[in-house]
Design a protein around this nucleic acid. Structure first.
Lengths: 207, 207, 207, 207
DNA sequence: GATGAATGAGTTTTCATTCAT
DNA sequence: GATGAATGAAAACTCATTCAT
């Protein structure tokens, strides 16, 4: 929104840029950074290579722009999810639900996301790496603070360090998303967040 | 064992093969498949390129041999860990401890491991992929059966599907390993498995 | 002809393609397929290697394009030669003359021609092979039909199978061209076709 | 003959050398000089590469020895053929018959022979070339002298230069051998030499 | 003499990037 | 801004040849 106020030229520019990013996302997510050529991206976006270089300094730059854009969108959605309620348990439930929704709506972005946050980010030269990881950690700390305040309010028991709880819930959700990604039929992502959350909420061992 | 009985020539051959694999592991784990050249591997192993090709048909073949060898070693260690005791809780504790130990002893193998089981395995052409994933899943099912028998024996409460519990504990351990990998000082892998396990064992929410 | 109407870009492209083919012809004909490298061809054509690969998928592809182009040109000229007159003897004379002319004008193409029709075409992988041989045989059958109609009209005596006569005259002409190729001074290709033809036309043995 | 007198060691050496040459002949004739590796030859001969190098300085050397040996054998047979009779016509008939027989008995040698006398001898670096060509030319001159003496004795008409007649008969025979080589069923090499010779002996055109 | 592991120069091919139009 | 031909460095891979055992 607000784009209407830009001069026509600028609007077109931005649209072309976006078309290139879209083509790149589809290709990178399918084949990985090294198995996609700039010509391929240009062809898919229906531009000449030279044009792609008008928008992005080089291949890495294009990749970074892409990943940053996706990460931005993604973390914004998640942050909103945990801010949409006052109740901590509800925040967590929201987080599980929204992460599932965002992923389902952007399947091709997931592979990039996993490639960049978990393992194998040696795909590309450093730099991107640390930027994304920092943003990711920032979100984890925000998630940790939800647990912290939940513990203070006695909604949660103090069974572990809040940051560890954040890491735990995040890795648990990722694991379920992974299952779903590999075999959507055999492992559908649960509609009810509690299917996942119970694993943490209810104790496994009687005491 | 038994290698002593091989003729000298053969023993040397195997040693040289191993030297090449070692060099390749170090490089792949540091930079990723596509950012390592065969010449680089040869140089690090102190052989000529041609020699590397005497042992491995091509770059992919070398990579596969490497990953398979590592995965084999890794899964064998983990399988032993959960078979070393009769008590289910003890099996799980063992698993957490051993996975930490194996990783600590083979840091450079971890990146490969994560690259191949989680995300971004589009680095390389298929085949390896499915082989490793299958072995991984096989282990997960074995872990699930530990939970299953634990539930039957009332050592565990039936809070979730056993396979999901296996996935959960595995992802939780991975998450801690990841933290440690990124910042060993800030996030040491806990000596006491219960630091991790309590997150699952004790319920977060009072009921 | 007609090329004038092509857009400039396209005309340039075709010219560059031709320059590469010319360089390749000179080199292949001098040294043979395996003793010429793509870099060598590029250098001779005054382009970078990459450019050569823009025009031809790979080395074999370039070679095929070259040989096919030459064979096309060559067989067209010969076919015209035997169709330029109604008299069968004159057709054969024409054929001998034109084959000599075409060869004299395209010395470097001859070696390729001999390499591909006679012996040693195992230089390169199959396919080209059969294509050229078929075209060659087609021409021989056309030549045979000249003898056949000549025999029917009693211009020739029925001393042998017409196809054998075609093979005979063709091999005879090749033999003279070979002599000339090896020692142009000692064995000039005769201006008068009858120097060659008399060997077939006049009987060697009195009956 | 005479080999029995050599010491055992020497006899073995020669036998091994011959086994290597045999393996090389089979391979070169099937695939051509550049598509056969020294390892391939060694494997086929059931020796190690090093052993092959004990007998032949390098690949070219091996090839030369092979071709020279074959050419020697071949030209000896042909020379004997034209010396086995006093009558010139009979000499020529003998030559046609024997060339057919020798080829039929050594099919794999033919391809090498054609590769080296006709076309495409740029397979390998010069030297061999000229040696073989000289021997070949020497034979042609001997054949020419048969025609010359035949003409003097009025067995042949003086329709062309005797050397040209030699070249003509040789190329004609080669052409028939080629037809046979490509399609033995469709084009059997004639039992009766006169099927070929009539093309030269009887005049095609009435005078 | 025989072996075969090791060598490394040389070849084909790809692809990110530039730049004249 | 857009184009796409041209570039050339760099990578994978081959194979004739050597030499220690």
């Amino acid at each position: 929104m607000g784009n209407q106020e830009l001069p026509r030229r600028e609007r077109e520019r931005l649209r072309h840029r976006q078309e290139i990013l879209d083509a790149a996302l589809a290709l990178f997510s399918e084949k990985g950074f090294h198995n996609v050529s700039m010509h391929e991206i240009a062809r898919k976006a229906e531009f000449a290579v030279g044009t792609v270089y008008k928008f992005f300094e080089n291949k890495e730059d294009l990749y970074k722009a892409l990943v940053l854009e996706q990460a931005e969108k993604f973390h914004r959605a998640l942050t909103e999810a945990i801010e949409g309620s006052v109740d901590e348990i509800e925040k967590i439930r929201n987080y599980v639900r929204v992460k599932g929704e965002v992923f389902a709506a952007n399947v091709s972005m997931i592979r990039l996301y996993f490639a960049e946050t978990r393992g194998a980010s040696f795909n590309i030269k450093a730099g991107l790496d640390s930027h994304i990881r920092k943003r990711y950690e920032k979100f984890l700390r925000r998630l940790a603070s939800v647990f912290e305040s939940g513990i203070r309010k006695r909604r949660f028991k103090r069974i572990a360090d809040p940051y560890h709880l954040a890491v735990a819930i995040d890795s648990l959700v990722n694991a379920f998303l992974f299952l779903w990604l590999e075999a959507p039929d055999r492992h559908p992502y649960p509609d009810d967040p509690d299917v996942i959350l119970n694993i943490l909420f209810k104790g496994l061992v009687d005491t």
